[in-house]
Design a protein around this nucleic acid. Sequence first.
DNA 1: ATATGCAATGTAAACGTTTACATCACATGT
DNA 2: ACATGTGATGTAAACGTTTACATTGCATAT
Lengths: 346, 346
Amino acid sequence: MTVGIKEVARKANVSIATVSRVLNGSDSVKEKTKRRVMSVVGELNYVPHAIGRALITHRTNLLGVILPDVHSEFFSELIRGIDQAARERSYHIILSSTHSNKKEIESMLGVMQGGHVDGLIVMSPHLSADGVLKRLAPRSKLVFVNTYTDGNGFVSVSIDNFNGAFQMIRHLVVAHGHKRIAILKGEESNFDARERFNGYVGALKKYGLRRVLELEITGNFTEESGYDGMMKILKLKTKPSALFCANDSMALGALRAMHEKDIIVPGEIALAGFDDIPSARYVLPALTSVHVPIYEMGTLAVEHLLNGVKAMDGMKGIRKVLTTSIVIRESCGCSLKSDEEVSEKA
Amino acid sequence: MTVGIKEVARKANVSIATVSRVLNGSDSVKEKTKRRVMSVVGELNYVPHAIGRALITHRTNLLGVILPDVHSEFFSELIRGIDQAARERSYHIILSSTHSNKKEIESMLGVMQGGHVDGLIVMSPHLSADGVLKRLAPRSKLVFVNTYTDGNGFVSVSIDNFNGAFQMIRHLVVAHGHKRIAILKGEESNFDARERFNGYVGALKKYGLRRVLELEITGNFTEESGYDGMMKILKLKTKPSALFCANDSMALGALRAMHEKDIIVPGEIALAGFDDIPSARYVLPALTSVHVPIYEMGTLAVEHLLNGVKAMDGMKGIRKVLTTSIVIRESCGCSLKSDEEVSEKA
DNA sequence: ATATGCAATGTAAACGTTTACATCACATGT
DNA sequence: ACATGTGATGTAAACGTTTACATTGCATAT
């Protein structure tokens, strides 16, 4: 039905080999022939058949991306980064999201082994790399994003959850003098959540504060659970003077709860989040948060996938951790203080 | 390198044809043989090579999705819907976003003609369907999302921008008695923006209000442009009593501007948006907006693509318009009124 | 015993390319 | 005139499947 290389060849009075050579910008083909072929190609509106080509070249120029059911902002930024970097190298991405369980991930890995993609980017916050990938052919090109790679020989890109949380607590302590800081953390099974919690604990320790178990509430990264968690906190006899939420969605929920109960933020309780989602700057008071370079994480993953091929073979592994930065807005109480006090760097 | 059908065949003492039949759940193959083959398949961890298969079946089980650089919430919801529906039919999607110009879209169409995908979903708010697709092979399976399909014979799914806007204006007029309603519209080239503006104009006319040119400000759907637009409005000698923004991002910007200038919302100026993004419910006052069923639009697009194949051949075309609904929150002033007054339905 | 039919399996072509190798025409050096 | 080299092009195998068609073996009917 569609026009193939043969028709082009016939119409241009050459063999299909020559047509192929022209199309692949080969070295040795006479300029005149080249022009003749190209003219026929244009005339017939011929487009090489990617599948036929892929079969013999073993390259599809497709990258697989496997994501969990991740919140919207994170999702779109990551994809944007990946897609952009991929397209610059004339790759396209084949996407599969909302994967929460092993089964689904493995099904996607099937697509991969099936030769449909040249490489794979996997984000699996609940499953460790080793756990999922026992069966994957070792030669596969693969990079993990924000995934716990317990074994070695993996390539991974992630953000520095620990330090982001650490610095935020540090800020609450040294810039504002908080001593009773609650945390709304995520689920234990979530890699990001764990690390952020560790950062919180680490900072407490570092600055001589004791952990108080009743101030450690577990949510599940949804706005809803943030609201619920805050309600629990507000029932405490001695309330915290500050609350750190392991992501912004929960912080938004907590904020809603506090509005409802007429708690003044940051006057009575200071608030800080993590992720720096767009809404963070539009709520009142504007939310102080930890900014994470999601887009960059995406582009970096692609770059590693497409450049660092040998690195994988060597069983060495690469682990790139992108640095986070805290962005100060109103909810932590900085607007209440003099500029001088606020500007505590590093 | 990887294990192929031949090795399976050899190890199971059958021909590759039989292996193929077993794998495709064919009718006639003896139960015993079937088991033997499957056991070898498991043992060798064999996965059929998708490319080889696609070459002869002419099906890749891949759907192409071409999106413009669309705002994050819309983006992720749409993808979620598409991906979900696709996976239910064991398709995967190959995604290409941030396409703003014709060139990029056509490049993606190349991938399509190249046989890599079985169908295509295209969202192109700035380019009309006819305009873009002159060159596409007519047999291609293709559905448009939120795109102006001026010609016929296209399949499209979109949201009812006109009625969403219309109803919102209607609400502002009949429930709150506004007579001087400003609009912050989007760019003329944007299909959604045009329709929403038309809805605004239509409602004005219907309720006997006159258009006032100085109340029609053009933005570009960004928060920034909403802020700027609002600043312009605030410079007017006689300000509007209400403002309708063609999307929520601009409404958020406008809200920020009003906060800054100490304008009370909705007391002095009522506000309404369009899209019902998540932030809408977290800002203060919570934003009244038009809800759009993005997820459903995605699933519907896939269903049309995969079911309504013949419909396309018939040059008839299908045009599905999803209905929108207004969601009342605080920014329009409803919380100030009695429940009775508010509950004006239909 | 031979023919007939059916169920199970095998053989080989086809899908649309790329590419190693072969061929060809021609110019150059002798 | 002949060998040789070179640049341009053609031939055919290969990639990993599916599937139309051929073949085989066996049971049943005659």
